[in-house]
Design a protein around this nucleic acid. Sequence first.
DNA 1: TTCACTTTTTACCATTTGGTAAATCCTTTT
DNA 2: AAAAGGATTTACCAAATGGTAAAAAGTGAA
Lengths: 190, 190
Amino acid sequence: MFEPLFNYLELFQKIPLQDKEAICQNIECKKVKEGEILLQEGKLAKELLFICKGVLKIVSISDKGNEVIHFFLSENQFCTILKSFTESTVSTDSIQAACDSEIIVFQKDRLHALYNTLPYFKNLLDNITKQALLNKITLRNSYIGEDATTRYQKFIVQQSNIALRVSQTDIASYLGITKQSLSRIKKNKP
Amino acid sequence: MFEPLFNYLELFQKIPLQDKEAICQNIECKKVKEGEILLQEGKLAKELLFICKGVLKIVSISDKGNEVIHFFLSENQFCTILKSFTESTVSTDSIQAACDSEIIVFQKDRLHALYNTLPYFKNLLDNITKQALLNKITLRNSYIGEDATTRYQKFIVQQSNIALRVSQTDIASYLGITKQSLSRIKKNKP
DNA sequence: TTCACTTTTTACCATTTGGTAAATCCTTTT
DNA sequence: AAAAGGATTTACCAAATGGTAAAAAGTGAA
């Protein structure tokens, strides 16, 4: 049930069986359907999520009222609104399922309890978090100054596993173009 | 000489005098002129920089051969190519002075020595780094799906201190547009 | 100052992208 | 199967942006 989490964590370091049991007693599993909202904009992020299966999207609403997708997260990635989670401020972004997904939920207070019991666990998550932030920046930087066609082609290569599972509307929003433009781009480049 | 660094660090926590002395013995000051390259793409990032005065830019070369500016860094910010610095891999980006600047240089090996002497120092820098990464992502996300005029207006508001000191060519590169387009945008919105 | 060099502005046209609207395709529910 | 609703595609035109080139303005050095 929680295997995906430990399989992933043990890519970095071995976790003793009794620590795994301690962790298991402080997390829960959850299945969500496409479109379901895991964190609503304006609320506090009190949960850290780990994706066992599926794709989540981080979404905000632009000045013009459009939905803007900041990034997608898929299997073996942790997900929260880090600023809200760490600073206890209201989130300006939402977390939503981009397709049917299975996730593990760490409640913030229970996570901190785990940090006290297992000090190395905090370090591990901190390192994973730093790495994840770096990767998100790298992806976004690769789009600067590129036209929409190039951005789409890069997205298909860099995030092919996600491209196949989310709607075109979502991909267009992520790439910063309209869904009509994306449809046109796909047509022109077969 | 190193006051800007300690003034900044002590916004987060008090640093004992003798620790300051230890730090001072492991860093150096450097003045650089606009255009000077602090890290060349293809090399290893072996230094962590702290900006006392001026603006640095993180630059890569796109497939088309254009210079692309990922972000600007100014006073009271640390600067390195984090991936290269932490993983000892060659950097795909360069660090360059966007205007005349004064910086403090931490050599990687001496920084690690400091971490051993002052364990809290590593935590402090880690937290500052995480925060900085978050801020960079937030800035970039605010541009997704916005047209060039809106991106420019946001840039002026969000990074006014930088906007006044770097060339228009650099601003255009940062915003992902040509310098001609930026010139036109400025003309149309007085 | 004058000259050489770089940066910024302007102009022109080709291309890309946005916005609106309607048609088509797909999926789910009845 | 039929109906309903959402997603995707297509079409059309307006607006934004890119690319090339040249003029103008600014900067620094001799």
